[in-house]
Design a protein around this nucleic acid. Sequence first.
DNA 1: GTTTAGCGTTAGACTAACTCTAAGTAATAG
DNA 2: CTATTACTTAGAGTTAGTCTAACGCTAAAC
Lengths: 138, 138
Amino acid sequence: MTYTIHEVAQKTGISTYSIRYYHDHGMLPFVQRDANNNRVFSDSDLEWLNMIVCLRATGMPVERIRHYIDLVQEGESTVPERYEMMKVQQERTLEEINQLQEHLSTINFKVDHYAGLLDSHEPDSFVPSNLRQTPVNN
Amino acid sequence: MTYTIHEVAQKTGISTYSIRYYHDHGMLPFVQRDANNNRVFSDSDLEWLNMIVCLRATGMPVERIRHYIDLVQEGESTVPERYEMMKVQQERTLEEINQLQEHLSTINFKVDHYAGLLDSHEPDSFVPSNLRQTPVNN
DNA sequence: GTTTAGCGTTAGACTAACTCTAAGTAATAG
DNA sequence: CTATTACTTAGAGTTAGTCTAACGCTAAAC
């Protein structure tokens, strides 16, 4: 089964711009061309693309991904380096998730804060008069 | 208590470049200048900076953050919009964490895969001869 | 049989959010 | 009094796209 660039974009949710960008930067070395010079994607190219998306989304720079893909093509002797790369990425991603969770709780706090403010200004809600007009920080 | 830009960079882990960038783009409207035109940061500026970092790290564009900070300065009447902004950010961050967790399991899989490969090539490990030299995909 | 619509191509301009460099000022140290 | 240090600004450079313009090929419409 083969796909046009637009079909790939549809299937993966990645823009055609990005797909061309990845291809042009050596991250999709197996993509073929048809008689009309159009890119032809196979299922295995889609899998590669998914891997690229995974690595990008977890913060690996394009240049590193390119290097990783080069390593894969060089064969089994590069497994140790690939292993190290993936362990680094694993660590980085765990760290990133932790940070996001911390940021999320900051945001949760803000949401609750604003919800409280809005609630206390609902016309129907009762607020003791000595609590109205409290200074709102932010 | 006040701080120089380098002290702030140290305290927060944000580069002086970024701090100036945020200030220049209206996201730190309360930062003062000393007689020598150098930026002077207060503890409350540090808190603002932390909020900026939180919003940036969870994917809010600089322009939106600026807008948020403008809203805060406009006073209580903008609480509903700020509430909506924070709820959007909350939702987006939850989504982002979920995606990262999915990507992490892809990476975990790779790590295990490579660990297995390395293990089976350890000189001391026993591998039945009919299992050696299996084709390594990637 | 031409023309026009549709999908693809490339080269290159544009953008966001930094990141860095260069050139300048002002206080401080020797 | 000069040298170093800490800051300033303007503007160039970088990354990872994103978009536009100009063009090619094919297929359907007139």
